[in-house]
């Protein structure tokens, strides 16, 4: 089963056959051939890139448990095999630090419930990706529909919360939905986000200056900053290009590195992050409080960190305890007095 192939990328004949075969019918055939002591682990649909990572781990687990990985038309992943394979998958997910909601069916006892779920899955979308028209579509997409206005607040003991930065964010979910099937391909979604970041930087009447944080493309042409010193959220990936810091500076941007989270901190040596970036955007998740990420963060000045995605008091308390002063997320915007809240449009 080969559903991770991007839709327009010349799938081999076997793929076309697989995709056309109704998922439930295929599952029924596989279940008919299974013996006792089997299990099915289902992982909920995830964004394309996350789904690819989950799929790789399930395949590794399947190798040990004589299993098979299937992808349901709606994007859910299913690992079918000996019960040990599901346990191995859980262990691998923990090892990599991936947090995935799942459901487990014991087989063959619970096969009817599994089939009922499969039959309720939405039918496959076999429309070819209109790749050829993508760039034109990206020029037509209305920016306001894809932009979210967010605030970054400075929080600290004994002082009222105040807005430190105004942030414009491109919603990847909204972008993927607006694009249709090309939005299912992580690389095309990156391309779309880059194109829109360039369009945004050239948009009239844009907030600008050192108090504003705008998205930047991950490579290619760097658009001129709307005002000298405007903060640009630079995807971590852009650091692979050795000349990126110089090009950003030449275009008038002050970079804020985006893409740090608990998983990225397992890979990165934070001390090697470019010193020219005064701000580092760190996405909150409970895994950030684990020993590994906490240790990695010791190499960084907490004054450079902005804790994103704070959904509750736990995140804010963790950040304050680490000396972080800048926060964003729903739980943070809720702290603003009603007049100051800039609407989570």
């Amino acid at each position: 089963m080969t559903v991770t192939l991007p839709p327009a990328a010349l799938p081999p004949a076997a793929w076309r056959r697989d995709a056309a075969a109704p998922f439930a019918a295929r599952l029924r055939r596989l279940l008919a051939g299974g013996g006792a002591g089997q299990a099915a682990l289902r992982l909920a649909p995830a964004a394309p890139r996350r789904r690819r990572a989950l799929r790789l781990l399930l395949e590794e687990a399947a190798r040990e448990g004589r299993g098979e990985v299937l992808e349901a038309p709606g994007g859910a992943l299913l690992l079918l095999g000996e019960a040990g394979a599901a346990a191995r998958a859980r262990a691998l997910l923990d090892e990599v630090g991936l947090d995935a909601a799942g459901a487990l069916w014991r087989l063959p006892e619970e096969a009817p419930a599994l089939l009922a779920w499969a039959e309720a899955a939405p039918p496959p979308d076999l429309a070819a990706a209109p790749l050829a028209g993508l760039d034109a579509a990206l020029q037509r997409l209305p920016l306001p529909r894809l932009l979210r206005r967010r605030a970054v607040l400075r929080l600290g003991p004994g002082r009222p919360p105040r807005v430190a930065l105004r942030r414009l964010v491109l919603s990847r979910a909204a972008l993927a939905a607006a694009l249709g099937s090309p939005g299912e391909d992580p690389d095309l979604l990156d391309h779309a986000a880059d194109t829109l970041a360039r369009r945004l930087a050239a948009a009239p009447s844009l907030p600008a200056g050192p108090g504003t944080l705008l998205p930047l493309p991950r490579g290619g042409t760097v658009p001129p900053a709307p005002a000298e010193g405007t903060l640009g959220a630079l995807p971590l990936e852009a650091l692979a290009a050795p000349d990126m810091p110089a090009r950003l500076a030449a275009a008038g941007w002050t970079p804020a590195i985006e893409g740090l989270d608990a998983v990225a901190l397992r890979l990165l040596s934070p001390a090697a992050l470019p010193e020219g970036a005064p701000l580092l955007l760190l996405r909150w998740s409970p895994a950030l409080a684990d020993r590994g990420p906490v240790q990695a963060l010791r190499a960084l000045d907490p004054g450079r960190l902005v804790l994103l995605g704070c959904g509750g008091a736990e995140a804010i308390a963790w950040g304050l305890a680490r000396g972080i002063g800048l926060f964003a997320g729903p739980a943070v915007e809720a702290l603003l007095p009603p007049g100051e809240a800039e609407g989570a449009a």
């Binding site: 690819r52 990572a53 989950l54 790789l56 590794e60 650091l239 990225a264």
Partner: peptide, 15 residues
């Protein structure tokens, strides 16, 4: 790719 997709990189490396 490790920078663009740390989860995917760790998963691919594990596999």
């Amino acid at each position: 790719e490790a920078l663009a997709d740390p989860e995917g990189f760790l998963a691919a490396a594990a596999l």
